[in-house]
Amino acid sequence: MAAATQMSSLPSGLAICTTAPDILYLPELVFGGLVWTLVASTLVSPANPQGWVMFVSVFCFVMTLLWLILFACGVHKNSSAWAAADFIYHLIAVVFYLSASVILAYVTINMKVFSAVNNYYQIDISAVVFSHIATLLYFIHCILSAMRWKSF
């Protein structure tokens, strides 16, 4: 029963570093930043799919940082509307990152198949792995945010 009570309140301040869904903000920022950095450092041969991956990684990085700052400052005032907004944002982030991860994996596979010498292949593989980890983190955060929103 204590876990349900803890899930029904939105933390603020340093408490966001100790609660179940909100502790995932920092790993989301780290892995999202890694995806952003790795994709930016490679050769962008098919510009359109890689552009989508860059948009998703930068957008989610900036929005997650803003969301973290808003929760840390206590702007939410412990309302169910903020819990719903948290769930909706993470749902959008999951859909965006899933699409970007699949596109990035597809482009990386094609780069290996169609080019005999590709100096960026290991960097692209790392970006694919970190992109899938970021997708998983956003998915877990989305599920935990939905549970918190429903407990309000």
Rank of each mutant, 00 (worst) to 15 (best):
D22Y: 10
L137E: 04
V62K: 09
L136Y: 06
T108D: 03
P21L: 04
A100S: 02
M7G: 01
V53Q: 00
I88R: 05
I123P: 01
A47C: 09
F31H: 01
I133R: 02
E28I: 12
L137C: 06
S126I: 09
L70F: 08
P11W: 07
V39S: 01
E28T: 06
D124N: 15
V75I: 15
Y121I: 14
L26H: 04
F114T: 01
N110T: 02
D124F: 14
I92P: 00
I140K: 05
V117N: 07
I16H: 03
A105G: 05
V58D: 08
D22T: 15
Q50N: 05
L68Q: 10
I125P: 01
A20Y: 09
H141V: 01
T19Q: 14
M147Q: 12
P11E: 04
A4H: 11
P46E: 10
T108P: 06
I140D: 11
H76Y: 08
T108G: 06
F61C: 09
S115I: 12
V129N: 02
I103Q: 04
V113E: 05
V113A: 05
A20T: 14
D124P: 05
Y106I: 05
N110I: 06
P27T: 05
T37M: 07
G33F: 01
I23G: 03
I143W: 02
L14Q: 08
F152H: 12
G51V: 13
A15K: 14
V102A: 08
H90D: 00
S45Q: 01
A105N: 00
S101D: 04
F59V: 15
L10Q: 07
A2S: 10
S151T: 15
M1A: 08
M111P: 01
A93Y: 00
P49V: 05
L14W: 14
R148P: 03
T37N: 09
V117I: 13
A83H: 13
L29C: 07
Y121S: 09
A2Y: 08
A105D: 02
A2H: 09
Q122P: 04
A116M: 13
Y25K: 07
S8V: 14
S57M: 03
S131K: 02
M1P: 03
H141M: 07
A20W: 04
L66S: 14
F71Y: 15
L104D: 12
A3M: 13
M7Y: 07
F139R: 09
A20G: 09
I23S: 12
L29E: 06
